[in-house]
Design a protein around this nucleic acid. Structure first.
Lengths: 245, 245
DNA sequence: TAGAATTTGTTCGTATGTATG
DNA sequence: CCATACATACGAACAAATTCT
């Protein structure tokens, strides 16, 4: 490797690595060669490579994990927690191909928690829908939805076909619904969740618990969604009521 | 142990355990005796104890971890992500004693990320404030705040005294400020973070990145806060614009 | 589960080139 | 020309985290 004079070697190395990434030689999430390997390949000291990596890390192009290696940063999906968040719109807005696949559905009696959230009786029936949301074939979220069976009997079939909760609800005469609130926690994934999200068992999942209401204010859905924390970040925009005061 | 007739024994055991917890015999986060131990103590079969535990788990009073044991569920603090969230108000509203302790402060040149968030030049100076928020002596959050040094020179001294960012800002003539947006991710804690949060290294932290603005819309603070995910959950209330339509 | 090997993180020291006054 | 400061580059050793055997 030969270096241009007048520009720091680490900057040239950084540009070289960036080109390799944009060219797809190193893909998002993939491991880069070790620092020693890169140093040997470029014929420079390890420190020099580290300078280049540090700059690219600062630019959020790559990510370094001690003891593991250096990885190409996955482009995270920014998931807004607004009142009308729709999965398919968010993903396709990023020019990515959305897919929400139903993996399980069951009609069962409501647990205490579900009954409370849906504001129905403890012994009422609910439909449980489990689905995995993907973008470009990469798992982003694993959702469990509960809907009152009395109102939405058979919705699992429509959901399985349309692969969209919004569309399924529309076919039940519900043209609009909004998010009422969202509660956010973080946990380590169990085995099943890690598998469904195609995620390391050592990385946490972001969990949201949320309820949706129809235009009359009636609760229509309670959902628990587990997001792959490597690939999704949640976003809250606080509307500026301040301008009025 | 003697049992009342007419009520299931597991319910009586459940009430007994609940009383022990509220009486403080078992404290939040503590490990309960093993199921076998409890069964012997109550003079019943292990399955009977398990029924009681299952009910209390459903009520979110305790939590069972396979292979580990049964633990008293930590009472989680519900942290609203509204535009005027103030730590001290949230905690004292729960009748808990808030404390926000400054652990480090430094004036430094802005990193690329900080400069972008604060909308200042890359070479401008910023004040970095690191603090740990506690309630009743229990760590809840570890925050790093960046403020433009040009506007808030010396604010670290005021903050150290008043232990409140709101109050410190007020002394700089800023009577009101609001949260603009919040970005939420989850990560495993590094050693320092785990220590500051008095948290297991194997449990994730909830991370929020947020910016605050003054009434004129100028960015005054960029903050990264790490919450102990065992003890805090975030909460978003979606105001119902729907009623208008 | 214990230890070796791998990989990144940190801190020394040394040397060179460049800009500034 | 000199003194100083700063960024760059290399080398060696050790610490810390992770993975593999």
């Amino acid at each position: 490797m030969e270096w241009e004079k007048g520009e720091a070697i680490w900057k040239q190395i950084g540009r070289h690595l960036l080109q390799d990434i944009t060219a797809g030689i190193y893909k998002p999430g993939e491991k880069l060669p070790t620092e020693n390997e890169l140093a040997k390949r470029f014929g420079v000291n390890r420190h020099t490579v580290r300078s280049a990596i540090a700059a690219l890390t600062e630019d959020n192009v790559m990510r370094v994990e001690q003891g593991r290696g250096t990885y190409v940063q996955e482009t995270v999906l920014n998931y807004p927690l607004a009142s009308r968040t729709r999965f398919s719109q968010i993903v396709s807005g990023r020019h990515r191909l959305p897919d929400k696949h139903l993996i399980e559905s069951e009609t069962e009696t409501a647990s205490k928690q579900v009954a409370k959230q849906l504001m129905i009786n403890r012994d009422a029936k609910v439909i449980r829908l489990e689905s995995v949301s993907k973008a470009d074939g990469i798992s982003l979220a694993y959702s469990i939805s509960y809907l009152p069976a009395a109102r939405f009997k058979g919705i699992e079939k429509v959901f399985a076909e349309t692969k969209s909760l919004t569309e399924a609800l529309r076919q039940f005469g519900l043209n609009d619904y909004t998010r009422k609130n969202t509660c956010i926690t973080a946990q380590m994934p169990d085995r099943r969740t890690a598998e469904l999200l195609q995620q390391s068992k050592n990385k946490p999942v972001l969990i949201t618990e949320s309820t949706d209401i129809d235009p009359t204010g009636k609760v229509i859905q309670f959902g628990i969604t587990r997001f792959a924390s490597e690939r999704v970040q949640l976003f809250v925009e606080n509307e500026d009521i301040n301008l009025l005061s």
